[in-house]
Structures are given as C-alpha cells and as structure tokens.
Design a protein around this nucleic acid. Structure first.
Lengths: 250, 250
DNA sequence: CGGGTGTTTGAAAGGCATCAAAAAGCGTGG
DNA sequence: CCACGCTTTTTGATGCCTTTCAAACACCCG
C-alpha cells in the first residue's frame, strides 16, 4: 500500500507538547480495536451528504466511491481495495457514496475519537492522517492528468497498471490481476463509455499486451508496454529541470 | 475565499496538550511576519521535483500550477489567485511547477517552522492546515468530475464561474471578471485545445451568455444559465438521498 | 507603424459516443 | 447436470464533437 519512501515533511517524529511516546502509531492499531463490519455487494457504507462521522479502513473486498450528477450521470471518484482507507478527506459530510463492489469487510473509527487520540499522541497520529490525505491528493492529481490528457486506450492501460500496483501483484513477468468492478464502473471512473472501455481492452488483447482469461481477470503480459505515459505521471520526476519551453502541440 | 460554512470536523477548537491559547490563529498571521517576495510574469516560484521546503501564500497576481508529461504535453493542475495558498499538499518534493501568469507578490513560510509552530498551538494551526488540504481536495474532486463528465462548453462555463467565485466578484447581475491567463493555459487546464476553448467562448458570446470586452476580460451576463451542471458539482448536495438507480445514458 | 505573439475562425480528419444486436457468463430451477 | 433467462460484455455501424491543420485577424510593444 505504501507508495514511496516516506520521510514525512510535516510533523517529523514524536516529541510534542505533553503527549506520551507515540512510537509505532499505526492506523491499523487504531482500527484494530473496533469490530469488523460486513456489507454485501451493492450495499453502501455511507451516502454522499451523510454527516462524515467516521473514517473507514477496508479489510477485504472492493468499494467504489461515486457521485451522481444532477442529470443522472454517475462519476466514480475512485476505488478502494483491501488495506486502503476512505473518508479521511471528507469534511462535515461525505463527498461521495461508498458502495460495495464485492462483499466487503471493514472497520470504522469515529472522527471524534480520532481527534481525541490525536490530541494525546499529537505528532504521530496527525502525521498519519496527513499522510493519508497526501496520498489521496496525489491520486487525485494523477486522475486529473489521466482524464485531461490521455486517450481512451491510455486511460485503460493506466487503470490496469494502477490496480496491479495496489493489489500487491508481482510485477516481474506476466501479472494476473482481478477486476471485481464492472466495465461500467471502469467507464464511469475513466470518463468513457462502457463500449469504449471494451474496445480498448480488446485492442490491447489483439496486440498481445494483455490476456482476458475471464470477465474479471486480466493478465498483464508486457507491463513495460503499458507504462508509456503511465510511469511519467507518478509525482516524482526530477525532470530535466532546466527551463523547458513548455508546450508542444496538443 | 471561504467556500462554505466551516464548522470543522477534525480538531474542534482550542484546548490541546500543553499549548498556549490558540485563539484566532490564522495563516495570514503566520505569513504576515515574512517579507513579501516578487516575481515577474513567467517566473517560477518553484519547480516540480524541488524539495518542498516552503508553503506559499499569494498576495497579489495569478499563478499557474502545472506538470510537463514525458511527451511534452503540459497539464495545468490549477490556478492560484490573491489570497490563496500553494504547496500545502506537497510532500517531500513539489508535485508541480508554480509559474507566474502575471507579476505576483507572495509570502512563504518554511515547513519546518510551520511544524514547530504547529506543535505549540497544536489544534488551532493543524486544523488550519487540514482545512487548506480539504479545500484542495474538494477542488481536485470537482476538477475530476469536470474533466470526466462535461463537454467542452460546459467545462468553459464551469471555469468562468469558478474564477468569478474566487475573485470576490459580485454575482448579482452581470459580473466582470479578469482572465489573466492565456487561452492555452485554460485549454491545458480543461483538457481541451486552445481552438476548442475559443470556439466555446465564441458560442457563449453568440448566445448572449457572456461578453468579451477585451482579451482578458469576460462579462458573465446570465450566470444562471452558466450554472446548469456547475452548482450541482459543489460537494454539498443533500441529493434526493433515496436509492437512485444510478445511471442514465452517458 | 511594423513584427510578433496570442486569438479567432474555417475545413477536414479522427476519436469517442450512441444506437443496435449478437455473444458470453452466471445463477437458478428443473 | 443441463437448460433457461437474465445480466454483462463484446462487436458493428453511424454520427457528433473535438482535434488537427491552416490561415486570417487583433492586440501589444518597441
């Protein structure tokens, strides 16, 4: 789940006001105390607009986070897999609905409690929460670039690789990944139609870049050929740094 | 600059560990102590990949935040106007380049100092920083929906309205707004080409929805007609709440 | 008053959406 | 265990919207 070497720039290590030692503060530790809850496929953990009383951690399964636009269109903001959190970046009310793609198990912790604990172990926990938000922010910026700059096939490739990276798959050689969500879910996430998503996948298959053993399975046969644009998107790039003219044709 | 009634859900009011009273902690207060710096149009406050040593607050002018993709395309993540902050959501290194659209004045504060102060007045400041990030997150989610779901004309309308909302313009009756950035900037931000942005604007003008007194000026003559989709995007919506079927044609 | 940059408009091409229908999974019940 | 019916996915044909390529126009500044 970790994405890059975290050295943390806000709230270094421990030592705060009158707090106790905050060594090995983990979200898992906090969530662990709470009972696991279950939800069957299609059920909602919460709805857009509900008071954002809790922060969640997904233990198992897959969730889709979405909003319904005034004209009925559905925009999927993101997906969540085992080990990932949701609700951290919500304010007074949830900014999206969280719905189970598969049966899921999760834990929740109330924001009040999170805050209370945070005031004890100040630096440690606050830093963790901050970390989560930074992660979400990075994901959002990446999503923005994908939607704004990439064509259909590129979007699908990016999606497949990102799922692979988030589900612990071995990236040496061909990687088998599961796509629990439907093609429509993927389309609503990528800003495409279901048909375009299908066609993009079919084309990748024709070109031998992926294989489709089953409806919800994909084999990434040549990950190298999928990261054309993709890897360049990860917020890291030292970039040539010098004064780049900035803008070739679109 | 404020966007909605803030009641804050993380870190209620004051009272933390051993901190002093944290009443009226404002970012302005912090930044105010530092000297204002200047930058002429085209200059960069920082580059993508630089160590994220500071957080900035823009006093005057307009900045564009962008990343260059491996193939040379430029993706503008956002713009910043007077009073807004940047760099808050960056981790070890800046995730984008910040470049002056117009001559700008700004202040900066080092993240180390921000953290140090934060450990004193814990709850108060941490909450402010959190608030900033939540704002950015909301903006990012909105941007995602705009890019994923809206057509060219809708995107341009949304952009114009958002600029109006961020620059204190009176929204009663016709509103005159300034667009310091170029059409190319707008295009790179909206995931369109410069020509498409022009055509969308020309069409809005033909339809009497806007007027274009000058290259960098726009008069919003009927804001009501511009908020079709727009207002529905603001993360608030109680929404019909009940179990909506979720998905009309795309 | 020119050169240059930034903007606007036009014509043609391409990509994605839309409409339509066939194929493939998958759960259910016989 | 197989057949049926439903949902999901895939493929095909067509049209619209955005991009691309091209050129005219407007504005800023020296």
């Amino acid at each position: 789940m970790d994405v890059s070497p975290f050295t943390a720039s806000m709230g270094r290590a421990g030592v705060s006001g009158g707090g106790s030692a905050s060594k090995d503060v983990t979200l898992e530790g906090l969530f662990g105390a709470h009972p696991a809850e279950k939800l069957s496929a299609g059920g909602a953990a919460f709805w857009e607009g509900d008071p954002a009383a809790h922060v969640f951690q997904l233990i198992e399964g897959c969730l889709r986070l979405y909003r319904i636009l005034s004209d009925g269109r559905r925009a999927i903001i993101g997906f969540r897999f085992a080990g990932e959190t949701l609700g951290v970046s919500c304010q007074d009310t949830y900014a999206y609905t969280a719905e189970a793609v598969t049966p899921v198990r999760f834990r929740r912790i109330s924001r009040n409690r999170l805050q209370a604990v945070g005031e004890q172990q100040a630096a440690g926990l606050q830093r963790l929460v901050m970390m989560e938000m930074l992660n979400e922010m990075r994901a959002a910026q990446r999503h923005i670039i994908v939607l704004g700059q990439l064509g259909a096939e590129e979007r699908v490739k990016d999606f497949l690789v990102s799922v692979a990276l988030r589900t612990n798959v071995e990236l040496k050689g061909p990687a088998l990944i599961e796509l629990p969500m439907t093609r429509l879910d993927i389309a609503d996430y990528l800003g495409l139609t279901i048909e375009t998503v299908c066609r993009a996948m079919s084309k990748l298959k024709r070109n031998g870049i992926i294989a489709l053993p089953g409806r919800h399975s994909v084999v990434l046969r040549r990950i190298g050929d999928m990261s054309d644009m993709v890897d360049a998107l990860d917020v890291v790039g030292p970039v040539a740094s010098a004064s780049v003219p900035a803008s070739l044709p679109h």
